[in-house]
Write a protein that binds this DNA or RNA. Sequence first.
DNA 1: AATATCTTCAACCGCTCCATA
DNA 2: CTATGGAGCGGTTGAAGATAT
Length: 578
Amino acid sequence: MSRTTSECEDGMISKDQTELPLGEEGSYDECTNGVLKKGPWTSAEDAILIEYVKKHGEGNWNSVQKHSGLLRCGKSCRLRWANHLRPNLKKGAFTQEEEQLIIELHAKMGNKWARMAAHLPGRTDNEIKNYWNTRIKRRQRAGLPLYPPEVCLQASQGSQQCLDINGIDSGNKGQHDVLQTHNYGIPDVMFDNLKTNQSILPYVPELPDISASSVLMKGLCSSQHGSFMSPTMHRQKRLRETTTLQSSFSGGMKNDFHVFDQFQDGDKAAQYFGLSFPFDPDSVAKNPEIFGENQGSHTLANGNFSASKPTSEAVKLELPSLQYAETDLGGWGASCSSSPLIESVDTFIQSPPTGTVESNFPSPRNSGLLDALLYEARTLSSAKNRSSDKSSNSSTITPGDDADCSVLNFSETEWEDYGDPISPLGHPATSLFRECTPISASGSSLDESPPTETETLTGSKHKFGCSAEYNMKSEPVDHSWTPDREKESYTHLNITRPDALLDSDWLEHDSGYGKDQVIMTEAISALLGDDLSSEYKQMDLSSEYNQMDAGASTGHGWGPGSCSWNNMPAVCQMSEFP
DNA sequence: AATATCTTCAACCGCTCCATA
DNA sequence: CTATGGAGCGGTTGAAGATAT
């Protein structure tokens, strides 16, 4: 901020456009005429824009140039106004309350910066986005999970309440945002549902690449809403989804099935759930409780973050995982119920959604290249060899078996069994898996977390995908949210990394994944060429992760070609690795 | 002190939705 | 029904500052 301003100021000459420093800051671009300026705004430009808005009000940004002579395109003007010039903007670092709120909101909404901003008066989506990205990096470096355990816990508790409320709108806090946030939570539920009702999935395949599947994936993976909404989703879809999701969510999510429908037709889906429709997000929002929001948790809308004070800062975020688990149980209540995530996981493992889940998974898009690669690799590899594993896993994981293996098998099996019905990319299921896998794999602690940290989880549970979150939850939540604590508790979570997919455990795991790894490597090579494959090989994830697990490594990036952290599914993001 | 690396954040870009002609 | 323009959103970029070496 200051930076730009100062710079600009120096450079700026006069408010007159003609005088706008063309050469100094920023280039002139073709934005329209080729005359428009780009780059940092000068104080003069700011003044012009402010003046314009005073006279004409916000909006009509494209006419700014005409009326004010400002050599900026409408988009640039809007952005400048929204992010820097508009009144009531809060400048400076986020307060603790705001930070907490952001975390909470992100857990629920994912990368819905604009929506999140609606909950933070005076803050812009860009600020929040930047903050989050920074936070991700920072925590990743520190080896801390993105979301504090408390948040998860609270979320779960809150969800229970919701269940009780289950009904539809009960109270309303009036903040639709809240609703939305909850909505975001829905995906998880959906995902869960999918798992439970695999049979239902029929639609999935047909779903457009993204939306549903991606959402589901993310939900699956973690719960983090964080990314559960695929960036690629269309706006409308998003809206619909949210609404639908919300509705469905509020409805109790009993109809897993419909979740898919939602994607296609949100309203219908919503109705299906028995919610009032056309779904009115606002109305829903008004009744945050429906979604299981805790009172305190989201009252924030006004910026008051009162609730969060819990023992610390425990946020009431509803961890995706929780939701996820809950859904599995068949309802928020269930999920919310104290029953540890682990249990859910177990359930899931024991009676894995028969293949259903995977099929539903979103296309690789969400996850990114890595997923796609993995998917392809798998496909190729599968052709070559079908490991016996695959068949077994889907339904049940035998504790005795190498957990890791089970996990892997699970995922693989599903793909194969169910195929990838879907996606445009053609890798939907896989990709989903992939995304989830990391978690699962990791969660399982397969890889990363050397048993030490993940010890809490044992046996098959560990192996189960998405487990990381569960792990977290399973742990006693009483701890207050302190960095240290987080770190400790989260060490378990490391697994969730997207990398986990590549992780040694998974790929190289002694238990027999070695083959897979080889295969995958080959497949990747075939698909991507030596370059990528080599990178892939070089990643030596296993070692890195191990180190990380050990706590030795610090903030190391994912490595070349790794997916961007931001793009990772919330779930994955949830656990930050050391 | 100089250089390299990392972090932060404003701005841009691409995309999509919506309204309107 | 299609085309066009406005608006908004989310991801990414790149420069400046901060920090480390």
